[in-house]
Amino acid sequence: MKVIGVNASPKGKDSNTLKLVNAVLEGAKEEGAETEYIDLYTLRIEYCTACGTCYATGECTLLDDFSDIFDRMMNAEGIVLGAPNYIDCVPAPMKALFDRMADAIHCQMLTGKFGCSVCTAGGSGEYEVVGYMNKVLSTLGTNIVGGVGVAIGRDPTALGKAEENARALGKSLARSIRGELTYPDQDEVHRQKREYFCQLVKYNKDRFAHEYDWYVQMGWMK
């Protein structure tokens, strides 16, 4: 059971968001998970050029750290996303990561995984960002366990309570991976989403050759 934390804060070891991500990972570790951490600000992620090569071949023409990050996410059963609030959204490296996952969305590559998100803010908007990151995970096929957001500017002591909540979230994440917590409503949403993308890929079979092969391989092509 492996859980990976992906953080998009420019503050390195001084990041308050890092404290929340680490708390989730600690909670998961207490439940027996192996954990891994990725700091997006130490890596290079180029902007998607919308060339469509990934749809056809499964490969990206851009040579940077994206493929390694995505492979590490694919090798985990649980994914934790962390970001500070940048105008009710995520910082650029996290958005660049998301934009490079169009092929993974079409193929629903994170199906069967579980995820959650954490966010720190100055004054407000923390839960808008948590909701956005969780929506991205869901769009990729992930079942969402929950999220933690905290506005430190209003109450600096709130971070401590948020870390406690994040640790509990990590425990829930591990329990979900073990099958102790189930999400039938989300499972049905994902089933319908796979059917939608299956038809999209089937209709564009000539242009989306890699994705068509993926659906056949997964046994999802109808």
Rank of each mutant, 00 (worst) to 15 (best):
A92L: 01
D64Q: 07
L97R: 11
L63E: 14
I79P: 03
D65L: 05
F70V: 06
I105K: 12
P93I: 01
A33S: 13
T35G: 03
A92G: 04
E31H: 08
R44F: 09
M73F: 09
A92W: 07
I45F: 09
A102T: 03
P84M: 00
N22A: 06
A104G: 01
D64E: 03
N75F: 01
L110C: 13
D39Y: 08
E77G: 13
Y55C: 02
F114W: 15
E46K: 15
E77N: 13
A96M: 08
C51M: 05
Y37V: 01
V21M: 04
C89M: 08
I87N: 10
D68H: 07
I87M: 08
Y41A: 00
D99L: 02
C89E: 11
R100G: 04
A76R: 02
E77S: 09
C60K: 15
C60G: 08
A83N: 10
S67F: 05
I69C: 06
R72A: 06
A23C: 06
V21F: 07
S67R: 15
Y47M: 13
A96Q: 07
C107E: 14
E31S: 03
D71I: 05
R100C: 05
D64N: 09
G52P: 03
M94E: 04
A104D: 09
A56K: 15
T35L: 07
